[in-house]
Amino acid sequence: MNIEKARFNMIEQQIRPWNVLNQEVLDMLIVVKREDYFPAEQKSLAFFDTELPLPDGSKAMTPKLEARILEELALKKQETVLLIGAGNGYLAALLAYRARHVTVLESSSDLRDLAIGNLANNHVSNVDVVLADAFSFKHTGTYDAIVIAGGLEQVPEQLQKQLNTGGRLLAFVGQLPTLTAQLQTRTSGTDVSTRNLFETVVAPAVGAAPVSHFSL
């Protein structure tokens, strides 16, 4: 398998057509190598438009969804990020490449250990992965960006309060089978604006109020 050809095809055939047009984000996908965050038997699949299984039974996001998150957040190098859900560490690595520091809250010890190992093996030093349930953990820091890497009925107010003014929160909100990616921005000390971005499907966030399969 020609890894670089597969990466090029992923970017040009999956990611760019999904409205990821920021050249810095596209260039980052060449530098931060996705295959390095998967085991040997999955490396050839790392460029496919599919959710690959993780050790705890959950699944990694698709490449185009990870890239779209970076596109929408428009991170700056001095900014700090909170990521809820470690996955295999790749999304954290992408965020860390664009931001000053990333804090990850992960409730699965298997995924926490996997992410820490992958980040260390790829020399990513500006990420802390904390074993915690983000929806019950009393975490008091504030951030310039927050990403919730799973579906939920609504964004907890406590997480909105952890946004700095001008901060952005990206979440997947609604009811299965289709959720809406939302970008919430704190415009002042008390006001938060919401913009719907696109529809997608992601697994429910662990620890969040369950996302219903049905509506009344």
Results as ranks from 00 to 15, higher is better:
Met1Tyr: 09
Ala6Asp: 15
Ala6Lys: 06
Met10Arg: 09
Met10Asn: 07
Gln14Cys: 14
Arg16Trp: 13
Val20Cys: 14
Leu21Thr: 15
Gln23Asn: 14
Gln23Glu: 15
Glu24Asp: 15
Val25Ser: 13
Val25Cys: 14
Leu26Ala: 02
Asp27Leu: 02
Met28Cys: 04
Ile30Ser: 05
Val32Asp: 00
Lys33Met: 11
Phe47Asp: 13
Thr50Ile: 02
Thr50Gln: 09
Glu51Trp: 03
Leu52Asp: 07
Lys59Gln: 04
Lys59Asp: 00
Ala60Trp: 01
Ala60Pro: 01
Ala60Ser: 02
Pro63Ile: 11
Lys64Cys: 07
Glu66Leu: 02
Glu66Gln: 13
Ala67Ser: 02
Ile69Tyr: 13
Glu72Trp: 04
Leu73Ser: 03
Leu73Lys: 01
Leu75Thr: 06
Leu82Trp: 00
Leu82Met: 07
Gly89Tyr: 01
Tyr90Ala: 15
Leu94Met: 09
Tyr97Glu: 00
Ala99Val: 10
Thr103Pro: 11
Glu106Leu: 13
Asp110Cys: 07
Asp110Leu: 15
Leu111Phe: 06
Arg112Pro: 06
Ala115Gly: 14
Gly117Glu: 11
Asn118Glu: 11
Asn122Phe: 09
Ser125Glu: 07
Asn126Pro: 02
Leu131Lys: 15
Phe135Leu: 11
Ser136Ala: 04
Thr140Leu: 12
Gly141Gln: 06
Gly141Lys: 13
Thr142Tyr: 12
Tyr143Gln: 01
Ile146Thr: 08
Ile146His: 10
Ala149Val: 12
Gly151Met: 00
Glu153Asn: 03
Gln158Trp: 05
Leu159Ala: 05
Leu159Phe: 02
Leu159Asp: 07
Leu163Tyr: 00
Leu163Glu: 03
Asn164Ala: 03
Thr165Leu: 02
Thr165Gly: 05
Gly166Thr: 04
Ala171Ser: 14
Val173Thr: 09
Gln175Asp: 11
Leu176Gly: 13
Leu179Asn: 12
Gln184Lys: 12
Arg186Pro: 07
Thr187Tyr: 09
Ser188Met: 12
Asn196Ser: 15
Glu199Pro: 04
Glu199Asp: 15
Thr200Ser: 13
Val202His: 04
Val202Thr: 00
Ala203Glu: 12
Ala209Arg: 14
Val211Arg: 00
